[in-house]
Amino acid sequence: MASQGTKRSYEQMETDGERQNATEIRASVGKMIDGIGRFYIQMCTELKLSDYEGRLIQNSLTIERMVLSAFDERRNKYLEEHPSAGKDPKKTGGPIYKRVDRKWMRELVLYDKEEIRRIWRQANNGDDATAGLTHMMIWHSNLNDTTYQRTRALVRTGMDPRMCSLMQGSTLPRRSGAAGAAVKGVGTMVMELIRMIKRGINDRNFWRGENGRKTRSAYERMCNILKGKFQTAAQRAMMDQVRESRNPGNAEIEDLIFLARSALILRGSVAHKSCLPACVYGPAVASGYDFEKEGYSLVGIDPFKLLQNSQVYSLIRPNENPAHKSQLVWMACNSAAFEDLRVLSFIRGTKVSPRGKLSTRGVQIASNENMDAMESSTLELRSRYWAIRTRSGGNTNQQRASAGQISVQPAFSVQRNLPFDKPTIMAAFTGNTEGRTSDMRAEIIRMMEGAKPEEMSFQGRGVFELSDERAANPIVPSFDMSNEGSYFFGDNAEEYDN
C-alpha cells in the first residue's frame, strides 16, 4: 500500500510504541512475548500442572481467558453494579484439565481477579502490559475465525453469508486497541457500523446529549479505520460520505453494504499476525530463551520457528480426527482463516481442507461434555516452508469459486491468482447506482469489472525454506488448481455463540 510509510507498523501498534527502528520493534515485541511466557509459567505453578498438562491447549485457553477477564475493567465495573446470582464479580476462573488415573478430569478453578492481575503485572515488570493482553485477544479471535462461520451475524446486519472472507476479527472485544483495529476485516468494521446506525434509528437519543457526542466521535473513528483499509480513492470518498452524514440511517447502511461487497474484489488491507497460545510461549521462556534479547516478529519467520520446536497437546472428542484438529489450530496460529487453501497447503506441506470436510468441533470443551471418553493427542503445528504475512489485500483475480465463501483475504505475501467468483459478486451490483453516491458507485463498479483474471497478485513473492531466515531465496510455489480455494466452501461450520 502506498501510504505504508505514514502508518505505524503493526509491531508498533502491538507494543504501543512511538516510531521505533526494526531492532527496537523486535525487542519490544519480544518483551511482550516474554511477559506472556513468564505469566503462563507462574500460572502453571499456581495450578500445580504437570509439564504435559501445561502444554494442553484447553488449559492455555482457560488461563488466557482468566487474565483477560481480570483486566476487563468495563465488564468488571458492570458486574459490580449489576450483581447477578451466583456470579462473584471479583473472581474469575474456568475449567482446568488434569490427568488422573490414566483419565482426563475437569476441575473448575476460581481465583481472585486481583490475584491474577498481581501475577500478570509481576510477570511483566510491574506494568499492565496491555500489548500482551491484546495479543491474547487476537489469538482467540484468530481461533474463532478458523472455527466458526459468522453466517447468522452477517444475515442479521443485512449482509450476504458468502462475504465471510471479510469477517476477520469479528469476535475481537471493543477494547483491543490499535492492534485489534489493524486485524479487523472490512466486513467486521461494516458490521460494527451498521449495528451502531441501527441503534440510532431505533433509539432517538442515541446521537443526542453528552453521551451522543461520545457516540458520534466513536462512529467517526470507526469510519476512519474502515476508510484506511480501502485502497481505492472511490471507496475512500464513499467512506467520507458515510462519516460526514448528519443523521446516519438506511442510506448509510446501503452504502456500507455496497462497500463491503466491493471489497470482495477491490480488497481492503487487513493486517495478519501470528499470535500463538500462551502454552507455546511459556515452555520456550522456561527453556531459557530470551525473546527480548533475541527479538521477535509476528509477521516473519519467528512464529514458524517457534511452532517448529513446540509440543502442544489437545483434548480430542471420541469421533474427532486429531489431524483435522491440528489443521484448525495451525490455521489459527498463522492467522489464515480466509487465505486461499492452495497457498496454505503449499506452505504447510500437507493438504489443507475446507472447514466442512474437517471432523472436528471447536477447541474448547463445553462444561456439560462427558470427560470419560476424552483422549488427548499432539497437535501437528509444523510447516514445510515459511512466508511473510501481508497486510495488503493483493490485486484481484477471477477463479472458480464456491457456493460458500466467494473470495479470499490473503494472509501471506505469496504470488498467486486470487480466487473470487466474479459473476456471483457482480450480480449483486445491478441497477442500484442512484442517489448521492452514484458517481462513486459507478466508478467502483467500473474498477471491479476491469479486474483481470490473468493478473498475478504479489508478483514474484515466494515462500522460503525454514533454514532461509533472511528470506534470501524465494520459492514461487505451484498450486494444484483442481483443489478448492475457499475454506468455508459450501460450508456447515458451527455458528459462533458468545
Rank of each mutant, 00 (worst) to 15 (best):
S9K: 00
A27W: 01
A442D: 01
Y281T: 09
W330P: 03
E339G: 05
Y313T: 03
C279H: 03
S413F: 10
I33V: 13
G185S: 05
G349A: 04
L143T: 05
T360L: 08
F304L: 12
G200H: 09
L108T: 12
W386Q: 08
A251S: 04
R317N: 07
Q149E: 04
N483R: 00
S310V: 11
R317P: 06
M447F: 15
M136C: 14
A2S: 00
S392V: 08
W139H: 12
K91M: 07
E18L: 14
N142Y: 08
P83V: 11
N432G: 03
E369K: 08
Y111H: 13
E465G: 13
S314D: 05
L47G: 13
S262C: 08
G86N: 15
N124G: 14
D497M: 13
S245E: 09
E469F: 00
A428G: 05
K198C: 06
K452W: 01
S367I: 00
E494R: 10
R267F: 03
A366K: 05
E454F: 03
S9I: 07
G288I: 11
A85H: 08
A260V: 15
N498D: 00
M159S: 05
L79A: 09
L56H: 13
K7M: 01
E434T: 12
L358V: 13
W139Q: 09
Y496G: 13
D497G: 14
E46C: 13
V414M: 15
H140T: 10
M448N: 06
N205T: 14
V242R: 09
N125W: 04
R208S: 05
T147M: 09
T62V: 07
T45H: 03
I445A: 14
S310M: 04
K198W: 03
L264G: 09
L79E: 07
D491G: 10
A218T: 14
S377P: 05
K452T: 09
G17W: 03
W120Y: 15
E484T: 14
A427G: 15
V463A: 12
I347Q: 04
T188C: 06
G356V: 05
Q364N: 06
M481F: 05
R19H: 11
V343D: 03
E114C: 06
K48G: 08
L154K: 09
D34G: 10
H140Y: 11
E455C: 13
G362R: 04
N124I: 08
R348P: 09
Q398L: 15
R436F: 03
V186I: 15
G485W: 14
V190G: 15
